[in-house]
């Protein structure tokens, strides 16, 4: 038994000699139990062979595509002129033969049909946001341009599904507290 000269406490024989050894064993035990977690180290996901090799060109080609989509406002106007010209030609043709047609096509129907078809069949390269930016809706309510009025419930449902952060709406909040 080893005695401390200043007090009456003592320690078992060889306590300090093998302390480091015991401490290291304890540390190993502690860290060992952490790594022994039953959670698997990998999650089992795989990718098709050479997937990452072909990825960069695929993404880069999409950026050049996106660049190509930018078009001048003037060409947008040309679409209307083009559609109106086609409509006028059709009107002339059908206009002269209107008596023989069972359901005559009106100018309005024709113009709308042609314009709709043009947008359906051609890549105009403009997103709905870009189109919305081009058209001024000042002093126009949303319901003025919709066939059916939107109920508050539908609007809330849309916002819930499509807006992650209410801050995106740029609404000024007032604290009523």
């Amino acid at each position: 038994m080893k005695k401390d000269k200043k007090n009456s406490f003592n320690t078992p024989e060889g306590f300090f000699e093998n302390f480091n050894e015991r401490l290291m064993a304890r540390i190993q035990q502690e860290t060992g139990s952490e790594t022994k977690s039953i959670i698997p180290k990998t999650d089992g996901f795989g990718v098709p062979e050479s997937y990452f090799d072909g990825l960069t060109p695929k993404i880069l080609s999409r950026t050049t595509e996106e660049k190509g989509k930018v078009i001048q406002l003037k060409s947008y106007r040309k679409i209307y002129y083009g559609a109106a010209a086609i409509a006028a030609v059709f009107l002339l043709i059908f206009g002269f033969n209107w008596k023989t047609e069972t359901s005559p096509v009106t100018f309005d129907d024709l113009a709308n049909t042609e314009i709709d078809a043009y947008f359906d069949n051609n890549r105009i390269g403009m997103s709905s946001y870009e189109l919305a930016e081009m058209v001024s809706f000042e002093n126009v309510q949303l319901n003025d341009i919709l066939e059916d009025d939107l109920s508050g419930e539908v609007i809330l449902e849309y916002l819930d599904a499509n807006v992650d952060d209410l801050r995106d709406l740029n609404i000024e909040y007032i604290d009523y507290e």
Binding site: I38, I39, P40, D43, G44, F45, G46, P48
Partner: peptide
């Protein structure tokens, strides 16, 4: 493209 075993599926 998921090559996980039973435990990896259970993890998911």
């Amino acid at each position: 493209y998921f090559e996980g075993d039973e435990i990896q599926l259970k993890l998911q």
